[in-house]
Amino acid sequence: MVASSTTDADLFLSVRVLDPEGHDIRFVSALDPAGVVAHGRLRAAHRALDAERTLPDRPWHPHDRRDPLTPGETVPLDIEIWQTSVVVPAGHRLAVTVQGRDFEFPGEAPGRSRTAST
């Protein structure tokens, strides 16, 4: 569910793994050499679902129309988090971050390039 003071909003979901001390563990992916485990995103005005193509774990958004938000009104959003496979060691935790922009690890300046050594 989401509500906004505007007629549209972008939502970015990031699944992270934290070590026992709460520090992020970074993962190599096709898009990022030192990133999160998985992510998903959706523009709220494109929240319409295709009922025939949507699966219980995979919403299908046709992106064929724009449904503006009504400021202050709460609406449901189905956001697919891209599938992945990783073994999380005992003592580690999963964290889900929901933001209105791409995820950046704490302490990183916006737009700064991440590397595997960071």
Rank of each mutant, 00 (worst) to 15 (best):
S85F: 07
F103T: 06
T74R: 15
V96W: 00
S29H: 02
R101M: 12
H61N: 05
A34M: 07
I25G: 00
R26I: 01
P89Y: 08
R47N: 05
E52T: 15
R101P: 00
H92K: 14
P76N: 11
D67R: 14
P62M: 13
P56H: 01
L42R: 05
L77I: 09
S5L: 08
R41D: 03
A30W: 07
R47E: 04
D10Y: 10
G72V: 04
D24H: 15
T54L: 03
L77Y: 04
A44F: 01
L11M: 14
R65H: 03
R47I: 02
S113T: 12
T74A: 12
A51K: 09
V96F: 01
V98M: 14
R101Y: 08
Q99G: 10
S113W: 06
T7P: 01
S5C: 06
V17F: 00
V88L: 10
R47G: 07
V87C: 02
R53Y: 00
P56V: 00
S14M: 01
P33K: 13
A38Q: 04
F103V: 09
P110L: 08
I81S: 09
R101W: 06
I81F: 05
A38L: 04
V75P: 02
P71N: 03
L69Q: 03
G35H: 03
P62A: 15
D19Y: 02
F105N: 09
E104T: 09
V75D: 02
S14N: 06
A44E: 02
W82Q: 15
P89E: 03
I79C: 06
R53D: 00
R114Y: 03
E80W: 05
T74C: 05
R58I: 05
L77T: 06
V98D: 03
D10Q: 10
L13H: 09
V88P: 00
H92Y: 12
R65Y: 01
S5T: 11
D19V: 03
F12L: 12
A48R: 11
R47P: 01
P76Q: 09
L31E: 08
T7D: 05
D10N: 11
H23A: 14
A90D: 07
Q99H: 06
F12S: 13
L42I: 12
R26A: 10
E108G: 08
T6W: 06
F12P: 00
T7A: 15
R16Q: 08
D10W: 07
T6Y: 08
H39L: 09
P20T: 09
V17C: 07
D24V: 12
P106I: 10
L77C: 08
L11Y: 06
P56E: 01
D57Y: 12
